[in-house]
Write a protein that binds this DNA or RNA. Structure first.
Lengths: 203, 203
DNA sequence: TTTTTTTGTGAATCGCCATTCACTTCTTTC
DNA sequence: GAAAGAAGTGAATGGCGATTCACAAAAAAA
């Protein structure tokens, strides 16, 4: 009667799904969303174009998942830092540094995830991601103010500004095909900006 | 022999061109680049689709011009402030305020100009615009440091961060269709953030 | 093994718009 | 006013790539 997938089958399917996601991410990483046509993703994942649609309802859905899972990962890393040791200022610094360094690691990927135009849905996912990043910083700001490390200030706006600030500063060297020298200075500059901006004592 | 356009004819042509630009801007303002198909622009300008191509080589070129001229206008306003009276801190504040207020005035337009996905060329123009905005702030930063109003700092990075910060903070309430209450607070929050960030004395 | 259900294939379809172009209408020249 | 040139029209074209679909291969049920 009813069809029951064997365990191996289950696994193979799950594996296919993962391979599709991985292929998509890789293509985005090397050429942005443009390079990542369904046909290309399929080929790179060793499947046919049609098969993709057994795993994802649409191209947009696929890329939303690619983006979202990347963001999840990123957020997890930041969250770990936030929950870690040290005073708030140090942790804020660590967050910005960490994010910036990883972004500069894989330029195109970061560009695509931060700024490259894509379909509506992907864009919405991106906005959501930014908001989530904002939340992380917001929690730091709140803690910092509570502990007297930062002066009273609007945490919502501050959080958004921080995200915007380092995001923008990162995109410039990333976007076209800029060199990566001065990377340390860049990251340090961004960190300094953000720390001053929140009113941290030591800059 | 050779055809010479009468003065009236010249004028009518120039007028058409302007009308096309205006129509395009209006469409973008009300529905983003998506709403602004060539056919729609043409209709709205009282011309046929084909006619557009007598004035602009391509859709991209048209929108690049729309965007660029809007940016020019914006830059001119900021430049005026920069060249004006008062200490650097005050002028920086005025720039941010002025920009933010205008952006909140016409939400969709600002969104389109700051963030909405569009064709490659338009995007490049947008990046260029951001850089130009950056230059304006950079000049303020340099002056501020010279005059001792701001501490020593990386002006390039700082300028980029400022643009990113207020841009991001503006987009959140703008992007979907947010309310405009708390506008004053928003603008004030952004200004405060930026002033602290550059290390201005009074915040 | 045969039947049924699921998964995979990839060429054909389809939608979407910018762009073109054969033609009409208006301007200028003679 | 007629001829020649320019501007305007809008339906047809063209390209692109996501999505579908008729069919094939593979897996589970019988």
């Amino acid at each position: 009667m009813s069809y029951k997938r064997s365990f191996l089958m289950e696994e193979r399917l799950a594996d296919n799904r993962q391979r599709i996601l991985k292929a998509a991410r890789a293509l985005v990483a090397e050429g942005g969303f443009n390079q990542a046509a369904i046909a290309a993703v399929a080929a790179s994942a060793g499947l046919s174009a049609g098969a993709i649609y057994r795993y994802f309802p649409s191209k947009a859905a696929l890329f939303v998942e690619v983006l979202t899972s990347a963001i999840d990962h990123e957020i997890a890393i930041l969250q770990e830092i936030v929950n870690g040791e040290g005073n708030v200022t140090a942790r804020l610094r660590a967050c910005v540094e960490s994010f910036a360094n990883r972004a500069l690691e894989g330029p195109y990927l970061a560009y695509a995830f931060i700024a490259e135009p894509a379909e509506q849905e992907v864009d919405e996912a991106r906005l959501l991601g930014r908001i989530r990043f904002g939340e992380v910083f917001k929690s730091l700001l709140i803690e910092g103010i509570e502990k007297g490390e930062f002066p009273e200030q609007s945490v919502d706006i501050g959080a958004a500004c921080i995200v915007g600030a380092f995001t923008e500063a990162l995109i410039r060297p990333i976007a076209p095909r800029a060199r990566r020298d001065g990377r340390t200075e860049l990251v340090e500059g961004i960190v300094a900006f953000c720390l001053r901006a929140v009113g941290a004592k030591i800059s």
